[in-house]
């Protein structure tokens, strides 16, 4: 798959879920990146897809970095500020590795699909076998290189599994257009593989969603 090839070409500089997100976005699109960090994804999409991008980021230092790079980013909070955007003002609303840190993931997801035609959500999969194993073997909340914080100081308050997320999408009448997971070795699991395998082997998953007509 072409994403894998790109990942091999850029082994360190670009986050893998960003490359997958990029593959889902069409050129010249209007993109809102919620929880955009210092703007790495927006910059990638601006350079390679010529998008008209905007970002929201909660951490002020990150916002300042992004604006200094010439990106249109505001300091704000996904839980609080998405209501301000008009309906269908973007082609894509992206939430990359952020949904687990929101107070109300369901409401945020509904907002994404109100603001944009498509929502792209990437999240760490709590159903990954390594995490299951940590709880089973040690009886403690998992700490991994991707999720290094202890339970008491993590900003991630709403973890879910691939299965949980798919269930939520179903409950809010949302269509999963595409789902790609990344396994522990950085290999991609595509749509052809059944969902329970994503849930077991995927370290991170990326979902492309649209509202059911």
């Amino acid at each position: 798959m072409s994403n894998n090839q790109e990942r091999i070409n850029n082994p360190h500089s670009i986050r893998h879920d960003h490359l997958i997100i990029k593959s889902m976005i069409s050129p010249n699109a209007r993109v809102l990146d919620i929880g955009c960090g210092d703007g790495a994804l927006l910059e990638l999409l601006r350079q390679e897809k010529n998008i008209d991008g905007r970002g929201i980021e909660i951490n002020q230092k990150n916002v300042n970095h992004a604006v200094a790079k010439g990106l249109s980013v505001i300091q704000g909070d996904a839980d609080r500020d998405l209501v301000n955007y008009p309906d269908k003002s973007f082609d894509y609303a992206v939430l990359s590795l952020t949904i687990q840190a929101t107070k109300n993931p369901k409401l945020v997801l509904e907002q994404l699909l109100r603001i944009a035609d498509y929502a792209i959500v990437s999240f760490p999969n709590f159903g990954h076998w390594k995490i299951r194993w940590q709880i089973l073997a040690f009886g403690r909340m998992p700490v991994t290189d991707k999720l290094p914080e202890q339970w008491y100081d993590t900003p991630n308050i709403h973890f879910c599994t691939v299965k949980d997320f798919a269930t939520l999408c179903k409950n809010i009448n949302t269509k999963v257009e595409e789902a790609i997971s990344i396994n522990g070795y950085g290999k991609e699991l595509s749509d052809d593989i059944p969902l329970f395998m994503h849930n077991l082997l995927g370290r991170e998953s990326v979902f492309l969603l649209s509202k059911k007509k």
């Binding site: 905007r54 916002v63 300042n64 505001i74 300091q75 500020d81 955007y85 008009p86």
Partner: peptide, 15 residues
């Protein structure tokens, strides 16, 4: 900023 985002304006905001 909220008034601008309500218009889907191109806005940056630094505090």
């Amino acid at each position: 900023v909220h008034a601008l985002t309500a218009n889907a304006a191109n806005v940056s905001f630094v505090d």
